[in-house]
Design a binder for these strands. Structure first.
Lengths: 339, 339
DNA sequence: ACTGGCACTCTTCACGCCGGAGTGCCAGCG
DNA sequence: CGCTGGCACTCCGGCGTGAAGAGTGCCAGT
């Protein structure tokens, strides 16, 4: 049904359409590719491919363009990922190494990804449910104000200011500080939250109100680690290359990019590292974005797993983009694990 | 030269053009506004206004549109800022109060500002050169790894991991910690950096290498407080309302929005709080953005001063936008000062 | 100083036309 | 049986024409 030549024709159609952005006809095909057959033969193959739903024509008697199903076949069976060029790899590597902290890694990742793919890049902040407590610090700012700082193994710092009803003595503070640390140090965040429950009872009744509010705040900070619900976006200017159809293709994307919840759904659940997810057209979980494709990859080690990717028109350079996304995911993983 | 009626005509032209987005003619003007004169008279006034460069016509025999100079006169002399409606004020207030930390305040500010003005919103992170050291913490992570945490009065937390050549005793750490604090506590960041220079010499020779690297790191963290070079952007989707001229009006803006350096120049130097800066068309310091206007306001108290604002087409609702920017700046200032 | 009238300009849209690109089908050929 | 060349047909897109509409500038009159 789909012999080798038909597949070759499909590949040629996808490649030409991606580069020219215009429906491709039988004659143009044989001119640009060495198919070894005549346009008429290609036309027959095209008719078959259209019959199967892999390509379509915008109007009668225009060239063909790939359908979502066609892209899907292309990606699944006709694509071989080539590694990036050494200069590109080096660029990613050195650019990411310049990062000073976690935020900076994310920002730089977005930037390099957008630049490499010339698409809109999205990077989810590393999930921290699997990260551990590195340090808890409790500082007296004033007699009735405490500052609580939580530092996690992923390098993230959370800080809360706590107002207390009554002045707090320095003795309690240092006592509390050491107990908080010994209870949570090295624990994963959810475990740490559980461990904190019992601490309050170990203090004299008189101190419990203060201790209680501190512990509650810490538990909150530990569980409220919703950093994995944050995303960074970049390369919006690349939207311009989408085409000229303003309202139907660009507006919804721009709107989606503002809604981080939407972006998170677009990226999808982080699966195992190195896995590459490609969603094409209607496979994307938003109807408004049915003319776009999303290519995402999980990154990070088991300690901090998250997703990054790009979103672009269904008419995109899949092999190149996939290779770039995969490469960036790998380098980001490496950067995170060595910092 | 510019009598009251001519000013009224200019105001009417600006208002109509902003709302209809189309060149406005003499007849339409007298229909929509109670000018009390005939179209012919208005035409004479328009001719005068055009002579002076306040309005222009796209083609001979089309309606008039305001020039940058016209908008300038409009905002300088014909605009009275009305406070926002109570519901709007309440929305800003409650939305900002929900913020949990500094980052969150900035994010929320961008969002509310974009929503109110229906323009692209830009918020600069508070500058920290004027903020002071609230606390320095030094923690032993392992015998050869120290964690240095710097907490500033603006609520910002910087943390650095320091690898030492030799194991460090706890005695030195606590000694160093207290000296670092006493040297810098309450100091402004630049001053703190200066004060740190002498500390090294007060330690025994044997400890100096360790002390030195810690101090250097702290100095770096203190001076490297470039958070005021960071900005947040939101409301990009509002760009769609710019008009239909893709490449000449939207692309450059999208590109500028990616370049934070450009954005900082757009916002301009933070002047005194409450000051409202309006740059119209060519007054904007980027040629590519000469069809846009920027409205910016300083926010924050003297301790952390920065700028926020919006960028939109020169054809924008100046009074409304100015009022919104001013209001958000005020509420953000208030939020920051009470946290 | 304002107004009504008038001739003129210029854009914008609809209409119709034509060329080009591409298709589908058919008959012939190896 | 599969491939090829030829041919008639369809449809999009660009282009000139023409009419309509909106707006102006000017002038003479009140």
């Amino acid at each position: 049904m789909l012999d080798d030549r038909k597949l070759a024709v499909l590949r040629a159609i996808v490649e030409d359409y991606v580069s020219t952005e215009e429906p491709v006809g039988s004659k143009a095909l044989v001119d640009r590719h060495q198919l070894g057959v005549s346009p008429a033969t290609v036309r027959n193959d095209m008719a078959a491919l259209e019959e199967e739903g892999f390509i379509a024509q915008p109007h009668t008697s225009a060239g063909r363009i790939p359908t979502d199903k066609g892209y899907r076949l292309f990606v699944d069976r006709l694509t071989t990922l080539q590694p990036l060029s050494p200069p590109e790899r080096r660029a990613i590597s050195t650019f990411l190494e310049g990062a000073v902290d976690l935020d900076d890694v994310v920002r730089r990742s977005v930037r390099i990804l957008a630049q490499l793919t010339r698409q809109v890049a999205i990077v989810q902040y590393p999930s921290l449910i699997r990260s551990t407590v590195r340090h808890v610090e409790l500082v007296t700012l004033s007699p009735t104000r405490l500052l609580l700082v939580l530092i996690t193994s992923s390098g993230r710092v959370e800080q809360r200011v706590i107002e207390t009803q009554l002045p707090v003595g320095e003795g309690i503070v240092s006592d509390l500080r050491s107990r908080l640390n010994s209870a949570t140090l090295g624990q994963r965040l959810p475990d740490a939250a559980n461990r904190l429950g019992d601490i309050v009872d170990t203090f004299p009744i008189a101190d419990r109100p203060v201790v209680s509010v501190v512990v509650t705040t810490l538990v909150e900070a530990v569980s409220d680690e919703r950093s994995d619900e944050r995303v960074a976006v970049g390369g919006t200017a690349n939207l311009m290359r989408f085409g000229d159809d303003f309202d139907t293709s660009i507006r919804p994307v721009l709107e989606a990019l503002e809604e981080h919840v939407v972006l998170l759904r677009l990226l999808g659940e982080a699966t195992s590292p190195r896995a590459l997810t490609v969603r094409i057209g209607h496979e994307v979980p938003y109807d408004e974005l049915s003319t776009t494709s999303v290519i995402a990859a999980a990154y990070g080690m088991d300690e901090s797993l998250a997703t990054l990717g790009v979103v672009g028109p269904t008419r995109m350079d899949y092999p190149g983009t996939m290779a770039a996304v995969r490469a960036v995911a790998r380098y980001v993983s490496r950067t995170l694990s060595t910092s």
